[in-house]
Design a binder for these strands. Structure first.
Lengths: 188, 188
DNA sequence: ACCTGAACACCGTTCAAGT
DNA sequence: ACCTGAACACCGTTCAAGT
């Protein structure tokens, strides 16, 4: 009962907007996360969202960046162990929000946190003994596998949460890829 | 000058509708391929499309199936050569239509032609010496890599056709994966 | 059967106006 | 600065009606 004025419903944070977007994405997938519904969830007029983000894709990119920012990188152990750890963490965080995954694969994926992960992967593969050119190819191949696997695992489970198959086949494929990369590194 | 009646603009074929959808997808990406624009391109009322397809996703699925149906499978040579040939053909056909790729990764991918390719892959990997369980994992891993690579290669190039990088790094990653799979097969 | 226009319930985004 | 309602140009989809 702060006041009776019904116009300024209280200034929303950028964080509140992203929280609302993530919630809608989780429950109803991409079509549910419209600017209008996000605004309604925050309790604000649709146009207010444009005070914080230039357009809808900017909201989606910011959300992706926030999720990628939470990924832990750079743990100890061998380069293989470190790569596996990143891949598992990435999978776990994205599978928890299946509605976000389609955005990830149809967007530019060029934010600072995406870069941070790509750079880390490249550095780890450089430490494997591969020449820089092959290390770049290997880090690209790993990113492809990780994102592809997450996409295939979640693409029709945004609501059913069927994807409880566990990371078994994910890890199997990842390790075959790493086997191939390691064998290539040992050739030189 | 067949007639002056302006209502029945001539019955469109299912094929004509898919052609129009593909054209719009190629030039303007997913948002350009709306039911209304497809209908306009064919020269028909929007509602007429619903005579042939129950909804928009059905149009998209049919288009994906048509593209996958053109993929050649089952050439001669070793299982590795056959897998590589399928992967290259799949890439070539999808990269030629970048606008279709996002649909592919956010749809069910359960049509008969998608099944045909998956079955062929599974059979080839069974011939590699892997036990059935590992062959299934390997065919899943390969599908993941192929679709993920195509997605990453095309996701921001639906209009610029930048993706002339060629299949080099695609083939490199594919071969590392096959190296790992082959090594696993030889263990048993 | 096949195709139509009108209508419904939505979109993203812009803009002039209010505080 | 920040937030608003009204408006514009779209969507997918349904439906009663025409041939």
């Amino acid at each position: 009962m702060v006041e009776a004025g019904h116009k300024p419903r209280r200034a929303p944070t950028e964080r509140e907007i992203l929280d609302a977007a993530l919630g809608l994405l989780d429950t109803g997938g991409r079509p549910a996360a419209s600017i209008r519904r996000i605004a309604a969830a925050v309790g604000v007029a649709p146009t207010t969202v444009y005070t914080f983000f230039p357009d809808r894709t900017a909201v989606e990119c910011a959300l992706i960046e926030r999720l990628l920012g939470a990924v832990r990188i750079g743990g100890g152990g061998s380069w293989r162990e470190a790569v596996e750890a990143i891949a598992l963490d990435l999978r776990q965080r994205l599978v928890a929000h299946p509605g976000v995954v389609p955005l990830l694969l149809s967007g530019p994926l060029d934010g600072p946190h995406a870069q941070r992960i790509a750079d880390c992967l490249l550095e780890l593969l450089g430490a494997s003994g591969l020449d820089p050119r092959s290390a770049a190819r290997a880090s690209y191949a790993l990113m492809v596998f990780v994102l592809g696997a997450i996409a295939l695992e979640t693409f029709d489970a945004p609501r059913a949460m069927i994807g409880r198959a566990g990371p078994d086949r994910y890890l199997w494929g990842l390790r075959r890829m790493l086997d191939g990369v390691e064998a290539e590194a040992k050739l030189h």
